[in-house]
């Protein structure tokens, strides 16, 4: 327990603004724990401690400009905005479906073209084969006959 003389000395030092933060904390803590000391400073230190408990109130952070913009919008303007939003949504849906249909059509056309090209290639190969057979026949049968 702090002696009365020590308490007096600390209080004098405190009022002369000569105390360190550690001394001030010790002084306040001692007086808080020993309310029976009946020093006249008690109410002030109690008030300081009470004020330390003050905390930030929950508040909405909204800029004044956005607030005024919200208030300024009239009913018809809000309705107009809703109609515009619905129209944009509908147009976007139509554009997407058309684009999808065009993609499907292009895909089918590409497949068809690929099939046609494959068939043409097959015909060309057959023609080449027939040509080669004909050349062989001529070489084997006609040319030796002519030589004889």
């Amino acid at each position: 327990m702090m002696e009365a003389a020590e308490l007096k000395r600390l209080l004098e030092k405190y009022y002369a603004a000569e105390t360190t933060l550690a001394e001030e904390r010790a002084l306040k803590q001692y007086l808080e724990q020993h309310p029976a000391q009946q020093v006249s400073e008690q109410p002030f230190f109690q008030a300081v401690n009470e004020f330390k408990l003050l905390d930030t109130p929950i508040q909405e952070f909204r800029t004044s400009s956005s607030e005024s913009r919200i208030h300024r919008l009239s009913v018809w303007r809000r309705t107009l905005r809703q109609v515009a939003a619905v129209a944009i949504l509908a147009l976007t849906t139509v554009a997407i479906s058309q684009s999808y249909r065009r993609y499907e059509r292009n895909k089918a056309e590409a497949l068809l073209q690929q099939n046609v090209e494959a068939d043409l290639m097959r015909i060309s190969n057959l023609l080449n084969q027939a040509d080669a057979n004909l050349n062989n026949a001529v070489k084997n049968a006609v040319i030796p006959g002519l030589n004889n």
Partner: peptide
Amino acid sequence: KHQFLSMIQPLPQLQQNILYLREVEELE
């Protein structure tokens, strides 16, 4: 209603600020 503020209220603003920062916030 905050006792601390009413106690320091008669002081000039700068002294109020200093008392607040030293006593409540315990700053050097």
